[in-house]
Amino acid sequence: MAPSERPARDPGLQPERTALSWRRTIMSAIAADILIWRGWFQALTGAGGGAADNTAQVVGMGVCASVAALTTIILVLCAVARIKVLHSGTAALESEARIAAPALTLRTASAAIVALAAATVSAIALGM
């Protein structure tokens, strides 16, 4: 079908559904961040109870907290970019290339989720 014969695209509620799903993902990432940072602060203060020399745990939890914060920032940037494209209006989404999410955005968000999961598992293993 030629582009001129194609019916006008009706996005319906797709932009809103996509925005809501990104927001849920970000809220989940923030919840994991809070728990990891809490574990790091407990390791810093020695409130976790354990050996007096817990330098390895503090450093490990600090790395996990840093990775968690960085991945959440990356997810927020990916979400903002995608939501901005979807809310730009139907005229901007007429071409097929604009409707689908760019591969770089998907790969970046996927890598951030995997890194956050690894940081969470590592924090749990370190005794969060």
Rank of each mutant, 00 (worst) to 15 (best):
I36S: 08
S28A: 06
A123P: 04
A112C: 05
G127E: 08
Q14C: 00
T90W: 08
G50H: 12
E96W: 02
A103E: 13
K84D: 06
A43P: 15
G49R: 12
S21P: 05
T120R: 14
V67W: 00
E94F: 06
T72L: 04
I99M: 15
A79C: 02
D53G: 02
S110C: 12
S28N: 14
M27A: 14
I36Y: 09
L13N: 13
I124C: 11
P3Q: 14
L44P: 02
R23D: 01
V114Y: 00
L106G: 13
S66K: 04
D53A: 09
H87W: 11
A112M: 03
T45C: 05
T18D: 05
H87R: 15
W40E: 15
A118W: 01
A117T: 05
A92K: 05
A112V: 12
L116R: 09
L104D: 08
Q14E: 08
A19F: 03
C64A: 07
A56Y: 01
I83A: 04
G49L: 11
R98I: 10
S110Q: 11
E16C: 01
A115I: 08
T90E: 10
L44T: 09
G39I: 10
L116N: 13
V63Y: 07
T105K: 12
I73N: 01
V63N: 06
S66N: 03
R6I: 08
Q57F: 02
A29W: 14
A112I: 07
G127N: 07
D33T: 03
L13T: 12
A65M: 13
I83F: 04
P11G: 05
L70F: 13
A31P: 06
R38P: 04
A52G: 13
G60E: 02
V114M: 12
L75T: 05
A100M: 12
S21I: 09
A68W: 11
P7M: 11
N54Q: 05
A68Q: 04
A81Y: 12
V121R: 13
A91Q: 05
T45I: 06
R9D: 06
A92W: 00
D53S: 12
A112H: 07
G49I: 15
I74P: 01
A51M: 07
L93K: 03
L93Y: 14
L13G: 00
S110L: 03
L13C: 11
G50T: 14
A52N: 03
T105Q: 09
L116V: 00
